[in-house]
Amino acid sequence: MLAIETHGLTRLFDGKPAVSDLSLAVPGGAFYGFLGPNGAGKSTTMKLLTGLLAPTSGRASVLGHDLADGRRALEVKRLVGVVPDGLSLFERLTGVEQLRLHGQLYGLPRAEAARRADELLVAMELTGDAGKLVGDYSHGMKKKLALAGALIHGPRLLFLDEPFEGIDAVAVSGIRRMLQELVQGGQMTIFLTSHVLEVVERLVTHVGIIQHGRLVAQGTLEEVRGAGTLEEVFIRTIGEDLTNRRLSWLVEPGAGG
């Protein structure tokens, strides 16, 4: 069964396509890495799949539910966890309040949400900052808290938009291990966007590459990268190499002003 399936998904902004005729197929239980250069349409796609944006045309279904069917919207949301670009945190709540209320909004009883919040704070190494306002958290701490929020209700599908951006290497390693365990246990499908290709390559089972809003490659990791590395395939597919571009005032010593 496909966890995510789209057909001809298109989104225009002021008449210009941000996502164009996108046909994704994410198998259930996959760890799907969605890659693309800046402005390719990764975050827009994720917003379309999580209901933050409405498509201009095309269809999308998540866990077998058509997203256009408004009657099933709440049901779908209950099954999904999201760490969106820009996060979804209330700055005037403390970390522990944020997680507990997050859990309650996803339908957990208060006591159970509080228990899971405590467990997640330990797992994310945020226990010492649990009573601090989210507005006072560092960027990395916010990312970890947002990830904890996305996991609190035990989703079947997890959307992660650049989850490793701004997080230190030790924390990345811990989170990576946790995510791998979740997928390997067969409990969850993960759809992830990231610029850190080495991390993605070690994590994912499936890859999709998007450029200028269009899907240019999709398949299992082995199918997509073939004999090379994911980075080589990515640069070859995107077709951009900035290594030979020089800046005139930085080339010669003393030329800068």
């Binding site: 999580t50 209901g51 933050l52 709440l74 049901e75 949301k77 209950r78 999904v80 999201v82 969106p84 820009g86 996060l87 979804s88 945190l89 209330f90 700055e91 005037r92 709540l93 997050h102 909004l105 996803y106 339908g107």
Partner: peptide, 16 residues
């Protein structure tokens, strides 16, 4: 006006 990123949660979470 004061929600910042938290406003996204209203549309992501299964709340009416």
């Amino acid at each position: 006006g004061w929600e910042r990123g938290g406003a996204r949660l209203y549309f992501l979470a299964p709340v009416r």
